[in-house]
Simulated assay, not measured.
Amino acid sequence: MYAFKAYPTKEDFETVAKALVQTHPCLKETGSHSGWNGWKNSLKFKMGNYRTKMRQLGRLDVTVNGGKRRSDTTNGDPPNTQIKKPKKGEINFLPDFPEGMTDQNMEVAREVLVNEMMKTKPKESLVKKEMDVTFAFRRKEIVNEKPAISQVVHRWPALFTENQVYYEFGRVVGKNLRENFLDALDNLSPSLMDLFKKKKGLTGQLLAELLYQTKTTEPTDVRCLCLRGLPVTLGDDPSAFFKTCFDTADNDLYRQTPVGLLFIGEENLKLNPSKVGIILEGNVVMDDLANLPQAFYVLFGLIYALHLDYPRYMKNTFCFVQQVMFNLGKSELPPKIQTLKNQLAV
């Protein structure tokens, strides 16, 4: 189990306990409704003990939480508030360094990356190779130190290119960012559009305006409609997330935006803008994305790559993308998301 996750969820323990009893029927517990509840509890204790042993051996994914469960913390915080563990279904939250690699080796490789990214046409194969090598070093820096986005842009410029966002998301969660997102969105689109048409009240009025702006059934337009309507349906505040401006140099409009998408050069908010940027901590970190769906899934990948929290005003939407569309993290859904999932009959 530890080879897959240092911190398994309740569902993970149940799955393993059930599989254990099914594979070895002689282990089935008499008098137990399921036959494996005792094994589930035993696995929890065994995993805790194993994590302690791994912490003593210096494994990064668990040493980061060493000594943080005390109730008498010096700063007065309650216990467990600083525990760092996967919360969004990451399979590589804090991986160990490759054998023989140290911080010094990794820093040299990072400098090679920075120098390569200064070229007009960086060599893609070299960039990917060095990004693969420095993955554990980068995760350690981002998760433990929580640097400002401007600092990450300076130290890891390759991370803010579209292809490297795809690769990094794959390294962190083991899934194809673009394919999984678009496949899930296309499967949900017919049900979402039907639901938008049935909504009443203020939500229905806002969705009706979006439906009116959708002039064609071209796939990109339909995807844009669904992505613009999803936060409205879930009760989020898309006005704090979707921004528009003529020039990215004029950052007064988005300086206070922690996470958002910027429609560039559009006089009015349109469903399918011709150019979209990504805002993180008030900075436009990417500004050449071709359409809204592309910008949305690249932003979602960056949130994982940079270990960011979902913005409060779009939390339901991002949780829906994570838990329903990508099937990552906990199986239990918040009420609003569970309701929408039931309405869509996913």
Rank of each mutant, 00 (worst) to 15 (best):
A109P: 08
K119Y: 03
P98A: 11
K84C: 11
R138S: 14
Q82E: 12
G89L: 09
L126W: 04
P98H: 04
D77Y: 07
N80M: 02
K128V: 05
E107Y: 03
M131R: 02
S125E: 14
G100R: 08
E130A: 07
K84R: 13
A136N: 08
K88S: 14
L126Y: 07
L94H: 00
K123T: 09
N115E: 10
P86V: 06
D103T: 05
N105E: 14
P86Y: 15
N115R: 11
Q104S: 07
V108S: 12
K129G: 01
S125G: 00
V133Y: 15
F93R: 00
P78W: 00
K123S: 09
A109Q: 13
G76K: 05
F97E: 12
P95T: 11
F135V: 02
R110W: 02
M118C: 15
K119S: 11
P86Q: 10
K129L: 03
N115S: 09
N80L: 03
K88H: 15
P95L: 09
M131Y: 00
T120Y: 08
N80H: 07
E90Q: 15
A136L: 05
M101P: 02
E99G: 08
N80V: 00
V114H: 05
M117Q: 04
P122S: 10
N105D: 15
V133F: 15
K128H: 04
P122A: 10
T81A: 05
A136R: 05
D132F: 05
F135H: 13
M106P: 04
F137E: 01
M117K: 03
P78C: 04
K123V: 11
A136H: 06
K88M: 14
D132M: 12
E116Q: 12
T120E: 14
K128C: 05
E116I: 07
K87S: 14
N80E: 03
N115I: 03
G76M: 10
T120P: 00
P78V: 06
V133H: 08
N80Q: 01
V114P: 10
M117V: 03
E99C: 09
I91R: 12
D96T: 06
S125K: 08
M106K: 04
I91Q: 08
E90N: 10
K129I: 00
E90V: 10
N80C: 01
I83Q: 10
K87E: 14
R110N: 06
E107M: 04
Q82F: 13
K85E: 09
Q82S: 13
E116S: 07
V127D: 02
T81F: 09
E116G: 08
G89V: 10
E99D: 15
P78H: 01
N80A: 00
A136S: 12
A136I: 04
K129P: 02
K119Q: 14
G100A: 04
K128G: 06
E90Y: 10
P122Y: 06
K85P: 00
P95S: 08
G89M: 09
I83C: 07
T134D: 15
P95N: 09
K88F: 12
E130V: 06
R110D: 00
E90S: 11
R110M: 08
K121C: 04
D77N: 13
V133I: 08
M117F: 02
Q104F: 08
K119L: 13
T74Y: 11
T120I: 10
V114M: 03
T74M: 07
M101Q: 14
E90W: 10
R110G: 01
M117S: 03
S125C: 00
V112G: 01
I91Y: 06
E99M: 13
F93H: 04
A109W: 06
